[in-house]
Design a protein around this nucleic acid. Structure first.
Lengths: 223, 223
DNA sequence: AGAACTGGCAACACCTATGATGCAAGTTCT
DNA sequence: AGAACTTGCATCATAGGTGTTGCCAGTTCT
């Protein structure tokens, strides 16, 4: 952190947040970003996105990667990363926030209440696969401290539950299934599908939903 | 570890690394012979096991935990951990080796060739759940450099494939299933089941296999 | 009992990742 | 064009983790 006992009194508050550097007048809580701060200049904005994307690429391969490696992948100096993100934690939080927004958008774009649940399930699955294959790391860490992120997450979660309920009501899911387990199984299959990128989201979604609903057996000897 | 403190004379420190028993060990980078490892005294042996178990407990919660934390969890001084395991890497390798042996034993104990595949599937699943819930971290890192471990792993892998083949032949699995996907889905469900410990292995195995084979749907509107 | 081994402790050496600055050169915006 | 902003670079400071070593008290084994 910056200890304000700074030698140079030119600036009272060195505010190394995600935003503009040094000078500014706005005493934001350190950490992430936001709306209250002045908008970044276009080139800076571009840099931020580049860093976020590089971080996802690098960290998804090696969660213990250093800031240096991330910077290198982004084609920037390490100091620039630190200028944009106060700390490693702030960077990860920003990634989570960004990914969460993408995630929410993906779900929103695909599950209108009036769509038949089975159709909605395919659509949501395909969309989620798309996002998660690009933002897997960030999404796995989505237990963000940011209340806004938490809210969005809870919202998506609930939407998912709702979808499953509709599926059951419509007779797509068996009446005796345990929601909790159903969702876990669903997530597990999504996770596994993403882990091994082998096909386009739509095809994968079909295979996934098919497995989830029909399983892989013939059903013969199972009571 | 890599910075060769070449100055340090080859001292008869009988600590070539991760020793559990008199297993042949990999050649040390620093050039000194990892020769005839004497069997550990009973108390030392106990310490080694305690450390391995503590490491699993700690690392499964936080893969980035420090040696200090591991030592503390084991009720041992940090230096003792280093005395038993040359480096963090050596510790993890030893964990992987240990877990792999448990794993192999669990599979061996449950899948005789003559058992009906469905029965074998339940048994293997239950046993694997048992082991994996205790050695989840170690098993996830089972890409050990140790050739012996790799061999055991490949063996188990093959055994699993064989089981799936038998299941298909017996009409338990549909004829059109993709083995690769089938195994992935199976692993994914295992992983998810282990992640949320909520029941005894046998019950969980039933639920898991049931989901894998029948899925969660009614099968009505699916082509 | 006595030799050999083991663990705790304290101290040390070393390395790496992190984060902060100041400055000069380049870019964006108005 | 000129102010404001941004980045790279070189530099510094620091913390925390890793791995060693020596010594002593306690344990194990024979």
């Amino acid at each position: 952190m910056a200890y304000s006992a700074g030698v140079s009194e030119t600036q009272p508050t060195p505010q190394p947040g995600t935003t503009t550097q040094g000078r500014p007048r706005r005493p934001e809580p350190s950490g992430q970003a936001a709306s209250a701060t002045r908008a970044l200049r276009s080139d800076a904005e571009r840099t931020v996105r580049t860093i976020l994307e590089a971080a996802e690429r690098v960290l998804s391969k090696n969660p213990a990667a250093t800031m240096e490696q991330i910077a290198e992948a982004a084609g920037v100096a390490r100091t620039t990363v630190h200028r944009r993100f106060a700390s490693r934690e702030a960077l990860v939080d920003a990634m989570a926030a960004w990914a969460t927004r993408q995630f929410a958008a993906a779900v929103d774009a695909a599950s209108p209440e009036n769509t038949p649940p089975l159709v909605a399930l395919y659509q949501v699955t395909a969309n989620v696969l798309r996002v998660k294959s690009d933002w897997g790391f960030a999404m796995s860490r989505a237990l963000s401290a940011d209340p806004e992120v938490a809210r969005v997450h809870a919202d998506v979660e609930q939407r998912c539950t709702r979808l499953f309920e509709r599926a059951r009501s419509a007779g797509v899911l068996r009446a005796d299934v345990d929601y909790v387990w159903a969702k876990r199984a669903y997530y597990a299959l999504i996770h596994e599908t993403v882990r091994s990128r082998d096909g386009d989201p739509d095809t994968l979604a079909v295979r996934l939903v098919d497995t989830l609903l029909r399983g892989l057996g013939t059903g013969q000897s199972l009571t």
